[in-house]
Design a protein around this nucleic acid. Structure first.
Lengths: 355, 355
DNA sequence: ATGAAAGCGCTAACAA
DNA sequence: TTGTTAGCGCTTTCAT
């Protein structure tokens, strides 16, 4: 049975040296066809397969990237994860997925390479992580950050323009005649406000339109899913506030809110228009389809993977070529980049429907 | 910078041997407290962290399990993945996720360890994979199968009782007075029918109730998501068939179907009752909440990981103890187990609502 | 209780 | 073009 056939076994079988077998396995150019065939036969007969762990140890790289998101159960992140896996595969990387629950402790652990020191690079979508946590990061694998949080640290950051996106959403609501627009999904309980950019966009656009943007129109949520959206909407209505539109931090919150609106006998968009954020598939199949901001997930995934791949290439290059200055520089100290992905507004029934 | 501090460096710093440092790192019992402290100090000063790749090479195991599902964008699998990650973490394993698109080629690749020879074990949820593909599997990592497909091969298989679950769903529909119950989500175009068990349950329960179960009531789908459900529902209605209930292969299909029903002015459940399968969160927040079969995902995840962990322990044990017969037996040749997780029917508005 | 040394399987200098 | 050999960092006998 395949109790581990090694290069050595193949070499013996073929009557050549280990190096030659290695050359064949790695598609090294200067191997005579005859030799290649001979070795290949031995490989096939023995069912040899390279031991990646050994290769990794030797090369100092594993070919594995990690992606850590707050919650895989959120379709946005699941869809993003799928995209990242596919892009990584194009670069011959495998993806190890983790979810942090958006909890700071867990995010710190992940950023430190917890149960993933085997990784070459990390894509992290932080919620509660603080600048100091990242500052204290003692791990050499390149890191790229995703999402709304900004840290001013030497790590590439990929996001859409959240302020502009929020303003686009609000502008759309204004255009369809709304003026009392609530914001669902803030986190006023926390020092850092994960949704501050979208909130800022909401405030800016309203202000610019000469409309009030009172705190009473901001409904905080504990988390970011259906249940949180439903709870926030219910609380808002119970507090006596009746908006004529709702802009939600994400689609899950928006859908949870719509459910409550419908339970209370309010029509969407007749009584209350709703705009979400993320463009998850779910939003396209409700009884009332959801207008939403659609971030370009493909691009986000591509930029994230590319960022890591480039950083890794740099490192490898520096190692190969001692002349290259900066070879021993701390990883990521090159220049951090702010990378932008596109977004667009997708108009559906929750703002322009007949209801 | 942490250009890789090794055991050797720590040993030199502490003025002890590599073995002693290793002992400390691995919490070996017989180390004097004084020595432990001394070594620990060196470790801290140097910021040493063990190189897992090296450890893996040496021990022949990586601590990584892979989970391959058809589609991460399907919340059922995303939620399941989350559960698997958590359970695996309890056993100190990391999870590498992959998605196959339900395509046979991809499933074969994954089962062969494509871009994951670094894994200790694999959890695979196959759709199109054939028995012969598995028979030809030449890979020593233990494998456990998830889902409706059955292969009669020496691999543990974890699933709920799909026939019973389907019968439960149909029985419920009969109980609420329906009799013309369509099945959405078959794959009649294929030799193997991934949904054959649920289909069998549908047929059995109808037959037992003395009702017809005509093929005209079976709506095939190309895939398994919202769009497929919507398309199938539309086709069914267009063909002139008007069921008074729909049992869908999964929740996404059910929700897609509900969307079409609502577009056509049909009320759920008034005109058509709908039952799904999976109990994804989405089903709890539609304008009409979805009655569904809720498989116990936690248990499925737990059983799957446990199965692998046990197999891996066996192998490790056999390696440690040459006396153990079966140590060189092909992995998985021990005894394959059929493991069952529970399910329950969750009644919601799509069958018992006011609509 | 601690040390010395072999070797996991592979790649990459360097030799031939 | 092919062979020899020295490690990558770790665990693990076997000594001491």
């Amino acid at each position: 049975m395949r109790v581990s056939v090694s290069l050595k076994d193949v070499a013996e079988r073929a009557g050549v040296s280990i190096k030659t077998v290695s050359n064949v396995v790695n598609n090294y150019r200067h191997v005579t066809p005859a030799m290649r065939a001979r070795v290949q036969r031995a490989i096939d007969e023995l069912g040899y397969r390279p031991n990646l762990t050994a290769r990794h140890l030797r090369k100092g790289r594993t070919g594995i990237l990690a992606l850590a998101v707050p919650e895989l159960g959120n379709p946005y992140f699941a869809e993003l994860a799928g995209a990242v896996i596919d892009v990584a595969a194009e670069h011959e990387y495998t993806v190890l997925l983790d979810h942090t629950g958006g909890r700071r402790e867990q995010e710190i652990l992940v950023s430190q390479g917890f149960r993933a020191q085997v990784i070459d690079g990390l894509i992290l979508s932080p919620i509660e992580l603080e600048r100091e946590d990242l500052l204290a990061r003692d791990h050499d694998a390149p890191l790229v950050l995703l999402g709304e949080r900004e840290y001013d640290l030497p790590y590439d950051h990929i996001a859409i323009d959240n302020v502009a996106a929020a303003r686009t959403a609000i502008r759309h609501l204004l255009a369809v005649g709304r003026s009392r627009i609530a914001f669902l999904g803030a986190r006023t309980d926390r020092v850092n406000e994960p949704s501050h950019l979208r909130l800022r966009g909401w405030r800016a656009e309203l202000t610019e339109a000469g409309l009030p943007a009172p705190d009473s129109m901001i409904a905080p949520t504990g988390g970011w899913d259906h249940a949180d959206g439903a709870a926030a909407m219910a609380r808002l209505l119970d507090s006596g506030v009746l908006p004529d539109a709702v802009f939600a931090y994400n689609d899950l919150i928006a859908i949870g809110a719509m459910r409550v609106l419908s339970e209370r006998g309010l029509r969407v968009p007749g009584d209350v228009a709703v705009v979400g954020f993320d463009d998850i598939t779910e939003g396209r199949y409700g009884t009332v389809t959801l207008t939403t901001i659609s971030p370009d997930k493909q691009t986000i995934a591509r930029l994230a993977v590319q960022s890591l791949v480039e950083r890794l290439r740099e490192t490898a290059g520096a190692a190969d070529d001692p002349e290259t200055p900066g070879g021993t520089r701390p990883p990521g100290s090159t220049r951090a980049r702010e990378l932008r992905a596109d977004f667009r507004l997708v108009e559906r029934e929750s703002t322009v429907g007949g209801g």
